[in-house]
Design a protein around this nucleic acid. Structure first.
Length: 477
RNA sequence: GUCCCCAUCGUCUAGACGGCCCAGGACACAGGCCUUUCAAGCCUGAAACGGGGGUUCGAAUCCCCCUGGGGACGCCA
């Protein structure tokens, strides 16, 4: 049985997959999954100059990372279908719905400038619309232009923007085939969307105006139009269309800076779409609740801080095993080798509340693995002092006695010392923290001890003790 | 310049039928609480219906104008 819904994501491989493209893909996937339809991928690589296989690979990888690779085995490449588009174009020509245009780039450019100057809409003046046979006979190169009706209007229904109408008069005779014979975008999309059986075209708002031209083409070719949904653009903080100068815009950049794909997907979904007051959605929930009708009509400003917050939300709830898997590469970058096992999991657990990204976490986690603790000068100066020496020794003694050194046990070891020496927890915790981590900031001290493991904790305490002794035995300060 | 679209806190947004909205949530921000450090968490606060006309007993919600923003104007996609 034929699926009632069939969508596609059609990026052109002229750059990395960016946030906007990712959101378009996401909306397509959510809509399709909800309707148990089919989602296809089409690479629009007809611009041989700018298209690159490298970008195609990047797009595929990014979609995979985001978990949006629901397209099947077959990926359509427009560059391999050139002949098909030409056939459609030629058919239009034979039926008198398209004509040969011999105008040169210079002529067109001059005409455009003149029109702009005259406060008129810049569009093809129609020079060749009724034939220019003298040049035709000369065998000059020509482009094939679509003969746009001069009257009437073209209408279509847009699921997010509502009914749309354009006066045909405003539309120009656009090019179908370039003078080198290659097909142009508007022709290719129409032919492909038809041949691929696309029922819903969900794409960026920047294609909204093109849609009228495409609808005209569908009509001329005698094809039924699919349904359209144009999702609003994503803007930078300056309200300009998001671009490289707004910082990280590629999906890859977010992967590299330690974001979870779940968080990015969640954030992107909420940009332009909402479901009451809900902020956090699992993918399944999105599939269940997403509706194209609920997508807003106005462009949205990308807010990196909110994404960061969401990432932290996910950091706190994603299973440690998964975090470990994603964290390992970042640790490796920092020269830390570890196994994805209980020891790592325990350490991650102590860090997740205070790490917003995997990069932050990888920076934090280093102290657990370091061969030698390096004391921050100010920290050791302030906390590793002779006054605390005996208390630290006592603490070490207490810890040594414990067989299973978990948080609770560590806490008991501390209590004993505090009582014996009349210290407050802070008075002992800070020196211990410096001894174990090298700095004054870390997860809770009991957690650190438990996650670090007994032998390493004892070793570090001993080193701190020796450090204080060495300092104390020097000349008086 | 021409055409199209849009318009609620700094940002993302909630807001079916106009009264439940002197406008709710989230991020960020400020203050407080908690506290072994830093975070986190919790509580509180400041913060918006762009302006002007209508329609109506009553408008953030409907209509018009202005202003502002975005998109498109390629033999790019």
């Amino acid at each position: 049985m034929k699926s009632p819904v069939r969508t596609r994501f059609a990026p052109s491989p002229t750059g990395y997959l960016h946030i906007g493209g990712a959101r378009t893909a996401l909306f397509n996937v959510l809509f399709t999954l909800q309707h148990k339809g089919e989602f296809l991928l089409r690479i629009e690589d007809t611009d041989l100059e700018r298209s690159s296989e490298v970008y195609t690979q990047n797009i595929l990888e990014a979609l995979n990372w985001l978990g949006l690779d629901y397209y099947g085995e077959t990926i359509a490449h427009q560059s391999k279908r050139i002949e098909i588009y030409r056939e459609y174009a030629l058919r239009l020509f034979e039926e008198g719905k398209a004509y040969r245009c011999y105008c040169s780039q210079e002529e067109l450019e001059a005409a455009r400038k003149a029109q702009m100057k005259a406060r008129k809409p810049p569009k093809y003046p129609g020079t060749c619309r009724d034939g220019r046979s003298e040049r035709e006979l000369g065998g000059a190169p020509y482009a094939l232009r679509f003969k746009t009706p001069k009257e009437g209007e073209t209408t279509f229904e847009d699921i997010v923007k509502g009914p749309a109408r354009f006066a045909n008069e405003e539309l120009e005779d656009f090019v179908l085939l370039r003078s080198d014979g290659s097909p142009t975008y508007n022709l290719c999309v129409v032919v492909d969307d038809y041949e691929m059986g696309i029922t819903h075209v969900v794409r960026g708002d920047d294609h909204f105006v093109n849609t009228s031209k495409q609808v005209l083409l569908y009509g001329a070719l005698g094809l039924a139009t699919p349904k359209f949904a144009h999702v609003p653009m994503i803007l930078g903080a300056d309200r300009q269309r998001l671009s490289k100068r707004h910082g990280a815009t590629s999906v890859q950049a977010y992967k590299e800076t330690g974001y979870f794909p779940q968080a990015l997907v969640n954030y992107l979904a909420r940009l332009g779409w909402s479901h009451g007051d809900q902020e956090v959605f699992s993918f399944e929930e999105l599939v269940q609740k997403f509706r194209l009708e609920d997508v807003g009509k106005s462009p949205a400003v990308f807010n990196p801080q909110k994404l960061l917050w969401l990432n932290h939300v996910y950091m706190k709830s994603i299973p440690v095993q998964e975090i470990a898997g994603r964290l390992l590469p970042f640790m490796k970058e920092r020269g830390i080798e570890a196994d994805n096992g209980p020891e790592l999991w325990g350490r991650i657990d102590t860090l997740r509340e205070r790490s917003k990204t995997l990069v932050e976490m990888a920076d934090w986690i280093g102290f657990y693995y370091a061969q030698n603790v390096e004391y921050e000068p100010r920290a050791s100066e302030r906390y590793l002092r002779p006054e605390i020496l005996s208390a630290l020794e006592a603490l070490k003694e207490n810890l040594q006695q414990i067989e299973k050194l978990d948080e609770e046990a560590a806490k008991r070891a501390f209590s004993g010392v505090l009582e014996a020496y009349g210290l407050s927890l802070g008075e002992l915790a800070q020196p211990a923290r410096v001894a174990l981590t090298g700095g004054t900031v870390s997860p809770g001290i009991f957690e650190v001890i438990a996650a670090m493991g007994k032998s390493r904790a004892l070793k570090r305490l001993q080193e701190a003790i020796a450090f204080i002794r060495a300092k104390g035995s020097g000349p008086l300060d």
